[in-house]
Amino acid sequence: MPGKSFLHKLNPLTKVVWSLAVITLAFVYQQPLPILSLWASVLAVALIGKVLREILPAIRGLIIFAAIFFLFQVFLIDEGQVVFTLVPGTGIGRITDVGLKACTMLALRMLAMTSTIPVLLATTPPKDMIVAFVEKLKVPYVYALMLVTSLRFIPTLQEELSLVIQAQRARAYDLEGRNIIKRFLALIPLALPLLLMSVQRARTMAISMETRAFGAGPRTSLHTSTFQLLDIGVISSCLLLTAVLAVVSLH
């Protein structure tokens, strides 16, 4: 992953600053068109960073999410002129011009704001993120480590779950054909062995860490989080651009 593009080379915090800038502008703008261009700029950054193709599925997911959000909200606003009724003559499913505009804004805003997240994840190994947080933002190492180890355990848990499912199926345990409550209760035979094994694992991990001097006192770090010239450039232009655009838009 490192060195694939300038985005990969940036310090994770620089990318966080960029995300925050996008979020700020998304709140500042009150018209659909500027927000649309803001969103386009996020995708353009992804394109230059050579991760657009990689994050497309995530973007698609975000679009669907925004669309659902839009549909849920748009029927709730009564103000303004009715432009559309779902069941004509009854008033059920009314959409007003005010509602349409407000919800479009909301959905686009949400889209622009959240689209930076997949870009961030695709160009930053979790480890780098953690080093940056610990070193530059002084987040305690223990919390950061907790995050890394939990991330590491996800594939293990998936593998383990598959084994648990096999073992319980072999005892004629079947999730199909039950109602929702029963289905929920029926998760116990899957969740419980998984949980009990994880507790055991956690203990082993704690012991393994203990035997490698965890918590001995101040520690060093193999990896370091540095701000290059590029980072400083990107951060200052982000801040400057946001300030200018915000001022222009508010006047």
């Binding site: 383990e160 084994l163 648990v164 096999q166 073992a167 319980q168 072999a170 005892r171 116990i188 035979p189 419980l192 062995p193 009990l196 094994m197 055991q200």
Partner: peptide, 12 residues
């Protein structure tokens, strides 16, 4: 009847 490597995958 299937018996797997690790009994802890099923005992709950």
């Amino acid at each position: 009847g299937f018996l797997f490597q690790n009994p802890d995958h099923q005992i709950f």
